[in-house]
Write a protein that binds this DNA or RNA. Structure first.
Lengths: 322, 322
DNA sequence: TTGAAAGCGCTAACAT
DNA sequence: ATGTTAGCGCTTTCAA
């Protein structure tokens, strides 16, 4: 060995205390020579907290999430932290399990990017002194941060956009109105549409899935001759697109579709859709920052973050027919 | 507490020893009541191995991977293991970092689902007694398993499919031929096309991205009047679709596109594409199984697994024009 | 500036 | 069938 105590090695590795340069050097070379890699488990055990953060998502196969995950992981790695991803499959019971696993890992923090979570689980985390950051869950407290999005601005942009193209009969496909985020988008649409003085509007609520978008669009188009449709998320926009195809509507000649909130799909759905983008990798980064801030400074109370939205205009939005 | 020793709790949790049903029940309820979650760090430390497996992927935003990840995680969770996902961003240097982090976590195994890895890193893993499973890297050894896909079968199905629709001028968009998996697909295409007696074929190599598909398709269509195109992966198929749109070709009226190897895109790209599907969640499951087998039975040498492919026929494949 | 030593919460061998 | 107990490899307090 380097002829020093384990304690000294610990101090060198974590540079947590003044160590004589020469001693430090002896330790460092010994580490090199022996190919020593600190045992993460032992470190965690002794330190009482791990270097792993939890990242709970609804479904990694939903392209909404990989972007967030990427942003989160990249930010985490910069701070020598790991992220462990947990899928809930839109199931609150699985969210609970996920939280349990996170607790078991002694993770100092968790980002909860799903709405399917019980209040009891939300309150469990701070009790166990685990920092948490939520997406659109609207509460900020000790150990709890929240990220919200400027849905109103995004919807405004979407409405402005179709209005500019002369559309007057505009449909809106919303998500489950029980979710704050869906409700806010729906309300924003109604408000903006009124302000814009649109001739005719109709809103249908659905469930944020491709199938839901298909269904809602079909419903919307029967008896309502919309020339443009704004979907509250991208999956539903895709579904709406399929429904339009199946009714032999050309996009955008007969019907323009604006999908709210994705950027991932842009490249796939193109050229059929115009999108309002939430910068998702930013969400991931911000989520990590929120955790990092509260973890490193326990006196910190938790914060509210607001993400801007951004309209991605595509040539494919068409003028209103007729 | 439940009035039992810590050891008994351990035995119950791991059911590693016979425990009287009544005792077990007492322990279980106490666990419930206290919301006890085992400390992973302590377990790892005591057991000498961690319960975290590494899962290295090229890019989680590529829809190829989330499916694999899901399958892997679900299989892992059944065995009370966690999976930690590491993104390489198609960069061998980052793969090396990822492996290092895995080593630090004392992970007993790692699934490497990217081709961007140096030979030195591959050989490092078994030296550190970490099991590994690769995708299409073609070597099987102690601690090393390999998963390969029946590309030949898939390409055969794709060629048969377009042939059945009367297509005689068929283009092929391949990936980087330096990759075994891309090479095999390309070769299979050439072989099958010849066997099928197609009038005219042309193959262009590209790089497995949407942009690459766009580029390759454009190149393919200039001076070659293909009526069907087979793309070696889905991203390139999407790119090809865009290129076709931009040349005012209707799909499938003017050009049919068969995308090799995805199922995720089916729902998005529909109705434009026919796909040959690799069951990706199966890949994830198999990858976990491969690791689990070698981890739980160290005498086991590592195995070769072969995934079947499956053609997903969509009404959208059109007959050959003219 | 460094060392000694007491745990961290489990597992697994040994004892009962 | 269950309890006792010695570590696992670190961190961290306290002493030197």
């Amino acid at each position: 060995m380097a002829g020093v105590s384990v304690a000294t090695v610990s101090y060198v590795v974590n540079d947590a205390r003044n160590v004589r340069p020469e001693t430090r050097h002896r330790v460092l070379t010994a580490i090199q020579r022996l190919g020593y890699a600190p045992n993460a488990a032992a470190r965690n055990l002794a330190a009482g907290r791990s270097f792993i953060l939890g990242l709970i998502v609804s479904d990694i196969r939903n392209p909404f999430f990989p972007e967030i995950i990427t942003g989160f992981q990249e930010a985490a790695n910069v701070c020598s932290m790991e992220a462990i991803i947990l899928n809930t499959n839109y199931d609150a019971a699985r969210t609970r399990e996920a939280v349990n696993r996170i607790l078991g890992l002694q993770a100092p923090g968790v980002a909860v990017m799903t709405s399917q979570i019980d209040a009891s689980v939300i309150s469990l985390l701070p009790r166990k002194r685990v920092c948490a950051v939520y997406l659109d869950l609207g509460r900020v407290d000790k150990y709890i941060s929240n990220i919200t999005a400027d849905y109103e601005g995004g919807i405004q942009a979407a409405v402005d956009h179709v209005t500019q193209f002369g559309h007057q009969r505009v449909g809106f496909i919303g998500g489950n109105p029980a979710l704050t985020s869906a409700w806010r988008r729906r309300q924003a649409f109604l408000t903006c549409a009124e302000k814009a003085g649109l001739k005719e509007i109709r809103a249908v609520d659905s469930n944020f899935t491709v199938e839901g978008g298909y269904y809602a669009c079909s419903k919307l188009l029967s008896g309502f001759d919309a020339t443009a449709i704004i979907a509250a998320n991208d999956l539903m926009a895709i579904g709406a697109m399929h429904a339009a195809y199946d009714r032999n509507l050309r996009i955008p000649a007969d019907l323009s579709i604006v999908g709210f909130d994705d950027i991932t799909f842009a490249q796939f759905a193109q050229p059929a859709l115009t999108t309002v983008a939430l910068p998702r990798n930013e969400i991931g980064r911000v989520a990590f920052q929120a955790l990092w801030t509260t973890i490193t400074d326990p006196s910190h109370a938790g914060s509210e973050y607001c993400m801007e939205t951004r309209l991605t205009i595509r040539q494919s939005t068409g003028p209103a027919p007729r």
